[in-house]
């Protein structure tokens, strides 16, 4: 039998490590300004955020109905409207240069920064 104290220490250590790692990931920045709008595993749009001069938006239809409205502004992108029940993707806010993608689970939509050629997904 493993002692309770051992479990507590292991879980606490794991929590601290994961917290540090999460913080590192959430606050880190990525090179590159090209974002990909990925639906169901296929890239349906590629946008260079640094070349956007005027705000525009477009709608993405889900594979099984439902839609997301994607809003693009100079240097940033977000999902402004969605008809899914939780609307987590809308609450996630703007994507500029962070490695964390915007995800809409019910509509299988991911908006992520494109990896600069040759570098790893999680750099720095």
């Amino acid at each position: 039998m493993i002692k309770t104290r051992t479990w507590v220490i292991c879980i606490a250590a794991a929590a601290v490590m994961l917290a540090a790692l999460s913080l590192l990931l959430l606050t880190s920045r990525k090179d590159g300004t090209v974002v990909q709008v990925i639906q169901d595993g296929t890239v349906i749009r590629e946008i260079d955020l640094s070349r956007v001069s005027q705000e525009y938006s477009f709608e993405v239809e889900g594979p099984e109905g439902g839609s997301n409205t994607v809003l693009v502004q100079p240097g940033r992108i977000c999902i402004s409207e969605a008809d899914c029940p939780d609307r987590t993707c809308v609450h996630q806010g703007w994507l500029t240069d962070q490695p964390v993608p915007i995800v809409c689970l019910p509509h299988r939509l991911v908006i992520a920064l494109k990896d600069p050629a040759g570098s790893d997904t999680v750099s720095r």
Partner: peptide, 22 residues
């Protein structure tokens, strides 16, 4: 998630989700 989206971009969420799991 990785299987459905066929992108490893969502793996970034793993540490955050594991922490929330704890």
């Amino acid at each position: 998630c990785v299987g459905i989206y066929r992108t490893t971009a969502v793996l970034v969420y793993l540490p955050v989700l594991m922490l929330s799991g704890i």
